[in-house]
Design a protein around this nucleic acid. Structure first.
Lengths: 184, 184
DNA sequence: GATAATAGGGAATGGTTGTTTCCTAATAAA
DNA sequence: TTTATTAGGAAACAACCATTCCCTATTATC
């Protein structure tokens, strides 16, 4: 069932919610119409489940990228580099479910809006935490405004997904090199 | 006819392409079905026309914001502030057609993808130009990498629209204050 | 003033959508 | 082995979609 959900995630990422028909889902999930409706109340429920699976997976990836840094500054650099990598090439064209949901649904779908908002807040808090870590371990100056900088970095990461979907090439080292000035 | 297009822009921004039905368009544009199809080949053509009208209007606003600065650095600050303002409140929730098109359509619609790419490139070139202006007038250090910084700023502006659509509050002065570090 | 041409409106249409229903095959319980 | 229960699949259904067609005013032309 989880592998079917993974396939649903993929279709929703590529096409978005409205452009994905139940027919697309049956083909992608390799489940018949009736089977999908036995497992989920409706298309919306499939989407919500896919959304949650996607965010759980992505969160894991981000934490793991952060884990590969020796101090706060390096952890943030790795997180940003990981975002650029995710936003590029085929994976980038596939898109981000959080960004897609925010743009396509959060204005008209309260359930989705709540989840999108929560996810952004979680990510922002995580980055703010890393900044404070860096200030504690001496790798980031204390005068850096943790919350504002974290929010701006969220904008950068979300913007990367938009730009990546539009197929603009992204050079991770150079882009992140510039972005790290925010921690000066 | 242009005022009808403006109304179409509004609906497409709020709901996106797929979730906007011809019925929605007739209601918004105050035109009957037949009239729309007499003026445009199909729904896709309406969208393309709306997209072009939107980008023309936005471009004008951005140039005008830049015009209110006395040197390169101030022009960029004003452009960023204008983006934050546009991404906030009701206008922010209404969303950006460029971001929306990039996320919802550019993967499956070459015509839209080309327009989105061109628009992003135009904006990026504009910002890069402002950076070079600033370097010429002495308000921005010469060691700033104009192209990389411009691309990162595009990510910030596009990300602002995503975050704004998700209803997160944005403090223009503080956010832009942090972002201006990129020009240090 | 009569006629041609056109802009606009609304009903009809074929296709597609999300959802339900019913049937079949497999598994678990007795 | 037989029965109860469940997971999965395909066809049926009503609602809605984008699009076409045809009709009615209105404008422009002669």
């Amino acid at each position: 069932m989880d592998t079917a959900l993974d396939r649903a995630v993929r279709v929703f990422r590529e096409r978005g919610y409205h452009a994905t028909s139940i027919g697309d889902l049956t083909a992608a999930m390799r489940l018949a119409t009736g089977s999908i409706y036995k497992a989920f109340r409706d298309k919306h429920a499939v989407f919500l489940a896919a959304f949650e699976r996607y965010t759980a997976l992505r969160q894991e990836q981000t934490r793991s990228a952060a884990g590969r840094g020796r101090n706060g500054r390096e952890r943030i650099r790795n997180v940003l580099l990981s975002y650029v990598a995710q936003s590029q090439g085929r994976e980038g064209r596939r898109g981000c479910l959080v960004v897609g949901s925010a743009v396509e649904l959060s204005a008209v779908d309260p359930a989705v809006a709540a989840r999108v908002g929560a996810q952004l807040k979680t990510n922002e808090d995580f980055i703010a935490g890393l900044i404070r870590e860096g200030q504690a371990d001496g790798s980031i100056p204390i005068h850096v405004a943790a919350d504002d900088t974290a929010r701006l970095m969220i904008c950068i990461t979300q913007g990367l997904r938009v730009v990546g979907k539009a197929r603009l090439p992204l050079d991770g080292d150079r882009l992140v090199g510039v972005a790290m000035k925010l921690l000066a």
